[in-house]
Amino acid sequence: MADWASFWAMGGYASYVWSAYGIAAAVITLNVVLPVWYHRGLKRRIRRGAFIDD
């Protein structure tokens, strides 16, 4: 890439291209992070004995 300014400009379509890639990155990140968080919380609750009936 010789010229960074023209790379970010995307031939005048910068707002369209970068918003599409940004939304994709956000959605994928959420899909990776949320199950990991939930998994951690669930393990913590199991360790605390939250699901032991008696």
């Binding site: 995307m10 031939g11 005048g12 379509y13 369209y16 291209v17 599409a20 890639y21």
Partner: peptide, 8 residues
């Protein structure tokens, strides 16, 4: 035809 917007 579409230029850089096709990268989507």
């Amino acid at each position: 035809q579409q230029g850089d917007v096709f990268r989507i």
